[in-house]
């Protein structure tokens, strides 16, 4: 070290840096206190909105498997569908998909998080024209992107976004598997 090391030369910077850290941490804790509830509420709201999108008839949802499987009920308490949340690795990052299934048939698919996908390409998987292709497909046999396979159930990939389309399809298949395991076999 070029400069002289005296107790004062070490203590003063250390203490002032420590104080700054302390104040910053306190300020953050305070802000967190104020905003945490609102943030959690926002997240719940967007998840609920997504569940409602795939299961439009449901009035309320019961959580069967935490964060994964929800049972949608109408006003009379009858089951009108299951909403299943699955996540998968897409092109740029995680893709989160909500799948609605009723009586072994897919009634709706919602891509509720794909912000890491490329705008204009992978992000288009959340467009209705792509998502609506899943409606009416059966949950008991796998779905593929039509580019990969011509047998069985297929959906057409979004132009130039095969990877993201495949990711969504995989997530829907995963949801179907969870449905078969948790709901169908439990009946």
């Amino acid at each position: 070290m070029r400069f002289k090391i005296t107790p004062k030369a070490i203590l003063i910077p250390t203490i002032s840096l420590f104080l700054i850290c302390l104040v910053v941490t306190a300020a953050l804790a305070l802000t967190n206190n104020v905003t945490a509830e609102k943030i959690a509420y926002n997240e719940l709201l967007s998840k609920n909105q997504s569940m409602k999108n795939v299961c439009p008839e449901a009035q309320s949802f019961d959580e069967l498997v935490p964060d994964v499987l929800y049972e949608g009920k109408n006003e009379g308490g009858e089951t009108v569908g299951y909403a299943i949340s699955t996540a998968i690795q897409g092109y740029g990052g995680q893709v989160k998909v909500m799948t609605g299934i009723m009586d072994g048939e897919i009634i709706g698919v919602d891509v509720f998080y794909n912000d890491d996908e490329t705008p204009g390409l992978g992000k288009n998987t959340s467009n209705e024209s792509f998502r609506d292709q899943y409606k009416g497909l059966k949950a008991d046999s796998p779905i593929a992107v039509s580019k990969d396979s011509s047998d069985g159930q297929t959906v057409d990939a979004v132009t130039s976004a095969t990877i993201s389309s495949r990711a969504v399809t995989k997530a829907v298949n995963e949801a179907c598997r969870i449905y078969t395991e948790q709901v169908k076999e439990g009946e």
Binding site: D67, T86, A87, Q89, G93, Q94, D116
Partner: peptide, 13 residues
């Protein structure tokens, strides 16, 4: 920071 977004214990991936 980005790698932490890929940690999601609810999935197998």
């Amino acid at each position: 920071m980005l790698v932490l977004q890929k940690v999601d214990s609810t999935t197998a991936y």
